[in-house]
Nucleic acid binder design. Structure first.
Length: 491
RNA sequence: CGGGAUGUAGCUCAGUCAGGUAGAGUACGCGUCUGGGGGGCGUGGGGUCGGAAGUUCAAGUCUUCUCAUCCCGACCA
């Protein structure tokens, strides 16, 4: 066994790290906290990007690109925003290197100090709103519905592949609207796009809701998020959509003339998902044998492995295999044919399992004789022998089955790990022994949330949109509450 | 920035206590038998022992300094 995974039950966090590295998704780089996304991992990200990009465009958005660097002065214009990000910013102070006079290699040229430092963007609200100021004069210029695909840098203390890296890839939508109602509508629209994407493509059920004040984005009036549950019972915030009110418009003095000719400040939203979704995808479905990918995001959905001894056997098998592959591709199914002699069939089986390829076909002399194919599905680790005739239709529906099946499995897991509690003792007991989402009453105050966090590390993941109205008492203070919120330990 | 640990082959690590020719597994090259679940046998290549200075006839091992990384905490999508 060349690539042994740590088992999930033994050490979940080690299992995750092993999986990311051994499935060739990403690795740590020479730069602290920054990862190299390897081709196989990047292929999954590209699939996510392509689908999200399509969904953004279908909802009327366009792509643009704004600078990596943000002048320091822009940053301080929105008070809450600078407060939230100041502690984790990379700063460019110089623009030139030179040879050290003492022969110690290359040093920063002290004469090349910038007049004003540049911040490597941790998010782009400030540079974008500074730009929007020039784009907006009249109600006729609104709305602006821009998205950008970019990298951002947040100088985190501790990093983990995909879940939290110093530099990460994401998309950030920044919209400008004439009215509050329209901006709020946009905020909700995009959290719904994220939820659709997570559920239909990632096969990952999510809860949509409002963030509590403590967890809100720096500079937002309201933050909506999608929250997913990982297999270790911890929650992962997978996407956020912010209603920014007029905060940035006021900070950057972005006003428009309304139909009556009166100047008004513009209303804003911003929303984003990042390569963190890769972490979510990995943790939502995978097992001790490796990655389990939903067919809709797998770099290739089917792998074909020929089993042969001699070259003439291979050409006989290839003839059948290629006919099958052609039919599958005609149905839009992506296929890899691995006829390489570099590895043995057994090795390939294990490797593609590790990489989460949804369906594996094995064709050997036995199959040629019987007109059959061995079909293995990754999610259930099951195998069956199927007639070659009609195999394309069989696989087409099998891929749908797999997509649904892994969604249902994750959904059942979440249902099983969502617990209503009514007392503080019960809360602590469920948190420590069962994990998952805990639905409980809360008095609505940031102080109470903070105390709960200090005592248990659990935070309010969200106030779900569909939280049922019911009278109850805060589990911590006993004060009255009219709806349940979701608590969990989170990534 | 506090607490703990580790730097030896591409990777994972032994060897350091007690100084004396640089090791294993895995990966890699070649040959061969194999091939329906990470194969067997044979053989070969691969190291400034993180860096610098010191002690010594002799340093991976002892001393001092230094650099880097990892884990736990505070921060966080």
């Amino acid at each position: 066994m060349a690539k042994e995974l740590t088992s999930k039950s033994e050490n979940y966090s080690q299992w995750y790290n092993d999986l990311v590295v051994k499935a060739d998704l990403a690795e740590n780089s020479a730069v602290r906290g920054c990862m190299v996304i390897k081709p196989y991992g990047y292929a999954i990200w590209e699939k996510m990007q392509a689908q999200l990009d399509k969904m953004f465009k279908e909802t009327g958005h366009v792509n643009a690109y704004f600078p990596l660097f943000i002048p320091k002065s822009f940053f301080s214009k929105e008070a809450a925003h600078v407060e939230g990000f100041a502690k984790e910013c990379a700063v460019v102070t110089h623009y030139r290197l030179k040879n050290d006079e003492d022969g110690n290699g290359i040093v920063v040229d002290p004469d090349a100090k910038l007049e004003e430092e540049l911040i490597v963007r941790p998010t782009s609200e400030t540079i974008i709103w500074n730009t929007y100021k020039n784009w907006i004069q009249s109600w006729r210029d609104l709305p602006i519905l821009c998205n950008q695909w970019a990298n951002v840098v947040r100088w985190e203390m501790r990093t983990r592949l995909f879940l939290r890296t110093t530099e990460f890839l994401w998309q950030e939508g920044h919209t400008a609207h004439a009215t509050k109602e329209e901006a709020i509508e946009e905020t909700f629209k995009m959290v719904n796009v994220y939820a659709d994407f997570a559920e239909k493509y990632m096969a990952m059920p999510v809860i949509k809701g409002h963030k509590s004040e403590n967890e809100r984005f720096a500079g937002a009036l309201d933050t909506l998020s999608i929250e997913a549950l990982m297999q270790d019972g911890k929650a992962l915030q997978s996407g956020t959509s912010h209603f920014l009110g007029q905060n940035f418009a006021k900070a950057f003095d972005v006003q428009y003339a309304n139909k009556e000719g009166k100047l008004e400040y513009v209303w804003a939203s911003s929303w984003g998902v990042s390569t963190r979704l890769m972490g979510a995808l990995i943790m939502a479905h995978s097992d001790d044998n490796g990655l389990v990918l939903p067919p809709k995001l797998a770099p290739f959905q089917v792998v074909v492995v020929p089993i042969y001894k001699k070259d003439e056997q291979l050409s006989q098998i290839s003839e059948k295999a290629e006919a099958i592959i052609e039919k599958l591709r005609a149905k839009g199914i992506s296929v890899k044919y691995d006829y390489s002699d570099a590895k043995k069939p057994g090795w390939k089986f294990a490797e593609y399992e590790l990489k989460g390829v949804p369906v594996r076909l094995a064709i050997g002399p036995r199959d040629i004789e019987n007109g059959t194919v061995e079909v293995a599905r990754r999610d259930l680790l099951s195998k069956e022998v199927v007639q070659m005739e009609g195999i394309d239709e069989y696989i087409e529906s099998l891929l749908d089955d797999i997509q649904n099946s892994i969604y249902n499995k994750a959904f059942d897991f979440r249902t099983e790990h969502t617990t209503e509690v009514d007392t503080w003792d019960e809360f602590k007991d469920v948190l420590n022994n069962k994990g998952g989402f805990i639905s409980a009453h809360w008095d609505g105050s940031p102080e109470t949330e903070q105390k709960i966090k200090d005592e248990t590390k659990a935070t309010i993941r969200c106030v779900p949109f569909d939280a049922k109205e019911e009278e109850g008492k805060c589990i911590y203070t006993g004060k009255p509450s009219n709806k349940r919120v979701l608590f969990a330990l989170a990534y």
